[in-house]
């Protein structure tokens, strides 16, 4: 039984019987109830350790896969980062290789790359071009979409979702056009 509740049944019984001696003092009895508070003196180190222990109990962000897949895996925002780092990563890798080419005896001049690329079968050429053109198209189109967001337009939830799906279609069409029809 909880300490503060001790005696409440008795008090209630008394309150149910008017004109007894105790009812006059009832207010005073309940007002003087005390609550036991236990305090503890902690050293500086103990207090620090306690706080550190308590911080470990704080809630942590849940795992990504509890969220709706449509938002986490097909959101334009993270694919902007994927496509951007793929394109820029490719540029950085090519740049480093181009600089190291004379030392390693590689031929990365535009003429030799074009010649090597031209010798590939059509399907491989198209596939490689699409692998470059689709991320470029996606990044460019979504980049414009995000710049429009940054100006404060198109932020209604329905608009964001709708333009997100248009983006996939438009980037596929634009990527295919750049890869196969140029």
């Amino acid at each position: 039984m909880i300490a503060q509740r001790v005696g409440t049944t008795a008090l209630r019984r008394v309150a149910g019987q008017p004109k007894t001696f105790f009812t006059a003092n009832l207010a005073r009895i309940s007002a003087t109830q005390t609550r036991q508070v236990a305090t503890q003196k902690l050293t500086h180190d103990d207090a620090t350790n306690l706080l550190a222990q308590q911080r470990l109990q704080r809630p942590v962000s849940p795992h990504l896969d509890i969220y709706d897949k449509k938002q986490t895996w097909f959101g334009g925002s993270i694919w902007q980062r994927f496509t951007g780092s793929a394109l820029s990563g490719g540029l950085y890798a090519f740049g480093a290789a181009y600089l190291a080419a004379p030392l390693l005896g590689w031929h990365l001049e535009s003429a030799s790359i074009a010649a090597a690329f031209g010798a590939l079968p059509f399907a491989v050429k198209g596939g490689l071009k699409f692998a470059l053109a689709w991320p470029f198209a996606f990044h460019a189109l979504n980049g414009v979409r995000h710049l429009v967001f940054d100006l404060g337009y198109g932020f209604a939830k329905r608009t964001v979702i709708k333009t997100g799906w248009y983006l996939w279609g438009a980037s596929a069409v634009a990527g295919s056009y750049l890869a196969f029809f140029l």
Binding site: A47, T48, Q53, L56, V60, P62, L64, I66
Partner: peptide, 16 residues
């Protein structure tokens, strides 16, 4: 419970 990034051991800078 599947925590993406479980908290590391905590360190208190300065006083609590």
């Amino acid at each position: 419970r599947r925590d993406l990034l479980p908290p590391l051991p905590q360190r208190v800078d300065g006083t609590i």
